[in-house]
Design a protein around this nucleic acid. Structure first.
Ligand code: FES
Ligand code: FES
Lengths: 145, 145
DNA sequence: TCAATTAAAGATAAAAATGTCTTTTATTAT
DNA sequence: ATAATAAAAGACATTTTTATCTTTAATTGA
């Protein structure tokens, strides 16, 4: 098990790739994105269609079309992507799968995991989609392999 | 998405339940465990068979048989259960699904998530299976609902 | 207007995770 | 020995996740 679902991993990597490409050049096609983040093209298309419907990224059809991201979305936190794809279970759910995480009926890991959960949430809330563009341009960060 | 797979959630809850029952009374049957942690009985049976094969818990067949746990296993860390069921992906894998988490080819979340990952690992390594028995007896902690 | 391009949408498929059923084996008490 | 009990094992079923294929719709440029 990983922290995020495969779908969510692709989603985050793809959105960061689109952000990076948008700020340097222009729109970017699905084929380019899939190659850029090393993901199955047609599956990724589905994911991006979903994110597009939800307003996280934008797209236009036709020649010179493709995916891009607007200024406003660049400042949205990564948690928005995670919530859109995996829901908020990671942020509010019980570590051991109890129906309801609560102080009054805590599972054995409640106290220690609440802290970790909040930290995960904090990291994802405080990092914006646009935040990594510079380092992606510099090649200091990687989205594939 | 939750932190652990459903299978792993059941596994941890069940092992803690068996530990709790072993230290208070005696061996405990699969039916009792399933009811005690609110999980599908036959699925849980599979999981416990696996943990038994791997030596995390013990069992005996026949009348008055059931599952129990020995002193040694009581002192084992929860991370042993997680590794047995979900593997070590949570402890060593890349948050964004890159094939190899590394300092030289880090994903955008590498630095911040490495810290979190290590914390998760630390929590699971420092909490033993037997650690929660007292609070489980007191009813201060819950393994169901 | 037409052809080329590219994303959207819908249908299917494959794989993995989760859950159930049936038969077998070991153990115990009678 | 035999019957009852309870886990082990193996086969099967369902659901969810991941991935692919095909058709449609929108956009552009010639
Ligand atoms: S009750 Fe389990 S994490 Fe809160
Ligand atoms: S490279 Fe992604 S977490 Fe280390």
């Amino acid at each position: 098990m990983a922290i995020f679902s495969k779908t969510c991993e692709y989603a985050i990597r793809a959105v960061l790739y689109v952000a990076h490409k948008t700020t340097t050049g222009n729109k970017v096609g699905i084929k380019d994105i899939a190659a850029g983040i090393d993901s199955p093209e047609l599956y990724l298309a589905k994911i991006l269609q979903d994110l597009s419907r939800k307003g996280l990224i934008s797209s236009v059809k036709g020649p010179n079309g493709g995916f891009y991201i607007n200024e406003l979305s660049l400042s949205r936190p990564l948690s928005d992507i995670v919530e859109a794809v995996d829901g908020n279970g990671l942020f509010v759910g019980c570590a051991l799968g109890l129906k309801q995480c609560s102080e009054v009926n805590p599972c054995p890991l409640h106290h220690q995991f609440k802290a970790i959960r909040d930290q995960i949430h904090a990291v994802l809330r405080t990092n914006t989609i646009g935040k990594f563009n510079e380092e992606l341009v510099n090649g200091l960060l990687s989205l594939k392999k």
